[in-house]
Amino acid sequence: MKGLGLFRKFVIGTVFICGVIAPFNREILQMLAMAVICTGGISLIVIVPAFGLVGWMVEAIFITVLEKCRGFVPERAAVPPPIPPSRRSLALAGYLRDASRAGMTDAEVLELLGKQGWSEEEIREARQHV
C-alpha cells in the first residue's frame, strides 16, 4: 500500500510537470531527457524523488484546499459541532504524545513546556487530544 502511495505521488508529479509546467517552458522536458542521457541514468535517483516530491506537494495542497472548502459548509445537525482544537493545541498534543512515547516523565515535560511559556490550562486542554 505504501509503495502504491509513493507511485501515486510520482504519477501526480509527472502529470503536473508534464501537463502544467512543460507547456509554459518546453525546454524543461528536453533538459530532463538530457540530464538522464548525460549521466547514463544516474540522475534518475534525483529526478524520480523530485517528481514524487512535486506530486506530494500538489496532493497536499489539493487536500488542504478541499478540507478548507469543506470546513465552510454549514452543519445541518441541530446540535452545534464541537469546536475543533486549535493548531497550537494540536501541536502541543503531538509533543505530549511523543514525550510519553519517549518515556519522559511528567515533571520533565512540564518543566520544558513551562520554559516555553505554555500555561497549565493549555497543557490540560492539549491532553484531551493526545
Partner: peptide, 10 residues
C-alpha cells in the same frame, strides 16, 4: 529517532 521536540509558545 522520534525525539520529542517541544513546540514554541512564543
Amino acid at each position: 529517532d522520534g525525539t520529542p521536540l517541544v513546540p514554541q509558545r512564543r
